[in-house]
Design a protein around this nucleic acid. Structure first.
Lengths: 349, 349
DNA sequence: TTGAAAGCGCTAACAA
DNA sequence: TTGTTAGCGCTTTCAA
C-alpha cells in the first residue's frame, strides 16, 4: 500500500502538500505544476488513502450502520440492503449490516458499531410499524427504514402503503371484479391499517360501497386458511387483494381445492414479500412489489445528507427501477402488475 | 470516550503500563497492585479501546468481509449471515456484509473492504457449486461458504448434501412409501448431483431398485409444473423428495388439484430454502432445513482460526445448534449436516 | 506557496 | 517493574 509519505519523497515535496493536493484542497495553495506532479505520482503508484488513519484524525469513518431485527433474515430485506449498499457505495460510504435478535444484542451491536465510529445509522423494521428508537441511537444521525418513529423525532422512509393498496384495488376494479375481498393481517401495524384504508377508499372512489364481510384479517398460520376458506365460500368474491403473498397463497389454495383457476375464475393481487411465490406462481398470481431497493437507497441518501449537512438533490436513483406496466392485459381477470415506483416512497420530515 | 491517556493520568502511571494491563500482557511485567488500580480506573471510566487507533498500529482490524452474490437477497441467506455474525461477535470480530451484482462491482467491493483492512474474507454462494475465487481474494485468508473452490485451494464449509438426501429418502421409506420420486433441479450444481446421489443410494441401501422414471429434474418456472404433473399421473408416486421448497410446491399443487392431501395420501419432504413455505404449509409439508446458521458460524470460526493461526476447539456453538465436527475433521472441506426435521411424514402402517 | 510539527489513540521496542 | 520514545498514515495549524 502506497502512503502519502512515499509520494512526497518521490516527488520531492512534503506530506502536507501531498495531503492538500490529494484532497483537492490545493486550489490557490499549491502551485499547479507541483499539484500535477503529485497527482501523477499518486496515480502511478496506485495510491489509495488509508481510511483508518484518516478516520483516526478526523473522527469521520464514512461507515454507516444498518441495524435491523429480522430484516436481513427475511427475503424482502434483500432489496432494502441492496439499495442501501448501492447508495452507500456511490456516495463513498461503507455499510455495516447488523442483525439483532430483538432484545439484548441490540445495544451491544450498536455500541460496537459506534466504537468502530459509524457516522450514522439506519434502523429498519420488517413492516411499517410505530417504533421506539433505542436510546443509544438517539445521539447520532439516524434514519428509520420502513418504520415510523413513535415520537416523531427521526426522519423515516416508508412505502406509500395507502397508494399501493389503492392502486391494487383499482386494478381489480378495472379488471371487472365485482366482489373484491381484502385478506389482511390481524397483527397491528401501520402497513395493515394503511393498506386497508387504500382498499377501502379505492372502492369508494369507484362508487362502490365498502362491505366489511369481504374483509378477513388473519395471521400467518393455523386458522388462517380456514378463515379464508369460509370467506371464500360464504361471500364468493371474484377478486382478492392480499396483504402479502403468504395470504395470497391461502386464496390460491382455496381456488385449487375448488377447481378454480386464478387469472381465469378469480383475480388475485398480493403484495409480494417472499419472491418465491412470484417466481413459482408467476403466471397466475399478480404481485405488487414494494419499492425495497428504493427505500434502502433513499434512506442512505437521506442519512448522508444529514451527516454531511448538505443537499443531495444531485444524487438520483440508478435506472434499475421498472415503470408500471400498462393496464392493457387482454384477459381482465389476469392482471400482471409489478408496481415499483420511486415516488411511492413517502419521505417524512 | 475515555482514552488510555486519561486512565494513565488519573492513575499516575504511563500509557504503556495501561496498555500492558488492559491487554492482559501484564503478567510478571506490572506490579499486581498497579495493575488492579489501572483496571479499576478503566472500569470506572468505562474505558473502551478505540479499534481504529489499535488497527492503525497493528494493522489488524478484526473486520471480516462477507461477500456474496445474491446470498443476502435470498431468504435462506439470512441464516448464514446470522450465524456468521454470531460467531464474529463472539470472537470479537465485526462482519461487513457485501453484495455484489456478480460481475463488475465484485472487485470494487473487495478492494474497498481490503482498504478498510479486512483481516479475512468469507465468500458465499447461493447453492453449492464449483466456484472460481476472484484473484483479488487469493492473497488474504479466505473461506468459501456453501461453495467449493474449483482449484481446491481454499477451505470451504458446505452442507453434507448426500447425507441430507439419504436421510430424507430413508425417512420416506420408513414412512412406508412404496414409490418415491425425486423432484430435482435441472441446473447443474453440486447440490443437485449430491442430493440425487443420496436419494439413489438410500433406495439401494434399503434394497430397492432405483427407477429413473421416478426422477424429474426441473427448473423453477414454466414447464416445471407440467413436468411434475406428468410424473404425478404416470408414475403415481406416494412419496416425494424435493430439491427445494419451490419444487415441493409443484407437488403440493398437483395434489390439491387432484383432491389429494399431503400427509395423508402422499408424503413430501422438501429442502426448505424459503422459510415461508414451512410457515404457511407447516402441517402438511415436511421440511429439511439446511444448517445455514451453522454454516455461517462455522465458516467464521474456521476463518478466524486461520487468521489468528490457532485452534478454536475451545469455541463452541451457542445452544441453538447441533454439535459440529472438530476443526481438523478428516474431511476438512465438508461439514456434517445437521438435519432439523420440523414435521412428521405421513405414517403408513 | 510550501513545510515543519503536532497529534488522533494505541502498541512495542528499548531504557532505566 | 516502569517509563520513554517512536511510530502507524493521515490532517491541520502555524511559520517561513
Amino acid at each position: 500500500m502506497t502512503t502519502m509519505k512515499e509520494i512526497a519523497e518521490k516527488t520531492g515535496v512534503s506530506v502536507s502538500t501531498v495531503s492538500l493536493v490529494l484532497n483537492d484542497r490545493d486550489e490557490g495553495r499549491v502551485k499547479s505544476g507541483i499539484a500535477d506532479q503529485v497527482r501523477a505520482m499518486a496515480e502511478k503508484l496506485g495510491y489509495k488513502p488509508n481510511p483508518l488513519a484518516r478516520s483516526l484524525r478526523t473522527s469521520k469513518t464514512r461507515i454507516l450502520g444498518f441495524i435491523s431485527e429480522e430484516v436481513a433474515t427475511t427475503p424482502y430485506a434483500g432489496g432494502i440492503i441492496l439499495g442501501a449498499q448501492a447508495a452507500a457505495s456511490q456516495l463513498g460510504y461503507m455499510l455495516i449490516t447488523v442483525n439483532t435478535d430483538g432484545e439484548d444484542s441490540e445495544d451491544e451491536e450498536i455500541t460496537a458499531l459506534k466504537r468502530y465510529g459509524a457516522d450514522g445509522f439506519l434502523y429498519a423494521k420488517m413492516s411499517n410499524r410505530y417504533t421506539d428508537v433505542p436510546e443509544s441511537l438517539a445521539s447520532t444521525p439516524l434514519v428509520l427504514v420502513d418504520a415510523t418513529d413513535r415520537q416523531g423525532r427521526f426522519p423515516s422512509v416508508e412505502p406509500d402503503e395507502i397508494r399501493i393498496a389503492h392502486d391494487a384495488t383499482t386494478r381489480l376494479i378495472e379488471a371487472g371484479c365485482q366482489r373484491i375481498a381484502y385478506i389482511g393481517c390481524s397483527e397491528p401495524m401501520l402497513a395493515q391499517d394503511r393498506r386497508f384504508e387504500g382498499y377501502r377508499t379505492a372502492l369508494e372512489d369507484a362508487g362502490r360501497t365498502y362491505d366489511e364481510s369481504l374483509v378477513c384479517n388473519v395471521l400467518n398460520n393455523g386458522p388462517a386458511l380456514q378463515a379464508v376458506s369460509e370467506l371464500f365460500d360464504s361471500q364468493r368474491p371474484d377478486g382478492f387483494f392480499c396483504f402479502n403473498d403468504a395470504r395470497a397463497w391461502y386464496v390460491y389454495e382455496c381456488a385449487a381445492r375448488r377447481g378454480l383457476f386464478i387469472g381465469k375464475d378469480i383475480s388475485v393481487i398480493g403484495v409480494d414479500n417472499h419472491r418465491v411465490l412470484a417466481e413459482t406462481l408467476e403466471p397466475q398470481l399478480t404481485t405488487v412489489e414494494l419499492p425495497h431497493f428504493e427505500m434502502g437507497y433513499w434512506s442512505v441518501c437521506k442519512l448522508v445528507s444529514m451527516i454531511e449537512k448538505r443537499d443531495l438533490d444531485d444524487i438520483d436513483m440508478p435506472e434499475t427501477t421498472a415503470p408500471l406496466p400498462p393496464l392493457d392485459s387482454p384477459i381482465p381477470a389476469m392482471i400482471r402488475c409489478t408496481l415499483i415506483e420511486k415516488n411511492s416512497v413517502a419521505q417524512r420530515a
